[in-house]
Design a protein around this nucleic acid. Structure first.
Lengths: 162, 162
DNA sequence: GTTTTGCGGATATTCTGTATCCTTAATTTG
DNA sequence: CAAATTAAGGATACAGAATATCCGCAAAAC
């Protein structure tokens, strides 16, 4: 059970977009360079964010991406699900139906108990991610990243933001 | 991010083994028939349980598997990790190191903040599974499964348990 | 009109999960 | 002792997903 690497990419990209001044856009090219990622493939991750309405886009030179909402209105789960999908990690195939002792026409009153427990864990995972806002991440980074790197990165980004 | 179907199989098999009388074994063949699963492949899942010391095995006719500990001393995470592995669902590739603005020799004081948050969610998932004991599952099933099916399944199993 | 950009489709490659088969060694049964 | 049954592990094949690249299209900037 491993998340796509695109999840990591999308989170880091959103953190950068969160620092962008109002109304400006950053291109796939710039985001790929900044993170050392394959531009074409990163583009797919950003398209997922766009389809989930987490980012706005604009075409042409000076085009690119910006957040569609404020960083405090976007949480980790929004981003993770946009890229990874909303499917649960555990899929119940209802193998209890194969029990040879089942009477004909036996009908289960509830979803399988095993599945319910696994889904509960899934929900705990989602809850944790839902509780962390993109603005929280930016807050942590602004405290942890050395000020000189923080500032030079911002300048680098602004130079490329349309 | 999808768990192997073997996880589902292993959980259901453990639930059956939990109902086995002291000292008796149930074979792969019986477990595969009961759940309608491919015997050879289910065998791999059971081998994983064996390697994790969750079950004891014995060879020969009347051989098979039994729980190595009491159902109240085995939790969901034990079983899930035995089959799925203990690796975290989010792997940090440290893409921040690719930042072109990084001064030479820059050293990070902590693991990446993005990774820490994702790992926290992972831990919440694990905690939930850790809190559910195999005996809890058996308790739920014994209440939910219709008594006639519950009993006939047990008879079916006992007839095949060596 | 030329360049740059996001978007979607098509394709190739690698890796993992799924599944089957076979051999070996241990154990029970007759 | 001989035959049957079992778990264990290795080899192999197959399918689908993740990773990655390339192309053409339409929109926007200059």
């Amino acid at each position: 059970m491993i998340l796509k690497s695109q999840v990591e990419w999308a989170l880091h990209c959103c953190a950068i977009l969160a620092g962008l001044p109002e109304g400006r856009y950053l291109s796939t090219k710039a985001l790929a360079e900044l993170h050392g990622l394959p531009k074409e493939y990163l583009s797919k991750a950003l398209q997922s964010l766009s389809q989930a309405s987490l980012v706005d886009t604009t075409l042409g030179p000076s085009g690119g991406y910006r957040l569609a909402r404020s960083p405090s209105e976007i949480n980790f789960l929004d981003i993770v699900e946009a890229v990874e999908g909303k499917a649960r990690s555990f899929t119940c195939t209802n193998i209890r139906e194969n029990n040879p002792c089942r009477p004909a026409g036996y009908c289960d009153s509830k979803p399988c108990a095993v599945a319910r427990i696994m889904w509960e864990a899934d929900e705990a995972w989602r809850d944790t991610l839902r509780r962390v806002r993109l603005s929280d991440l930016v807050g942590i980074l602004s405290e942890e990243v050395r000020p000189d790197l923080w500032q030079s990165t911002f300048e680098w980004v602004l130079k490329r933001a349309g």
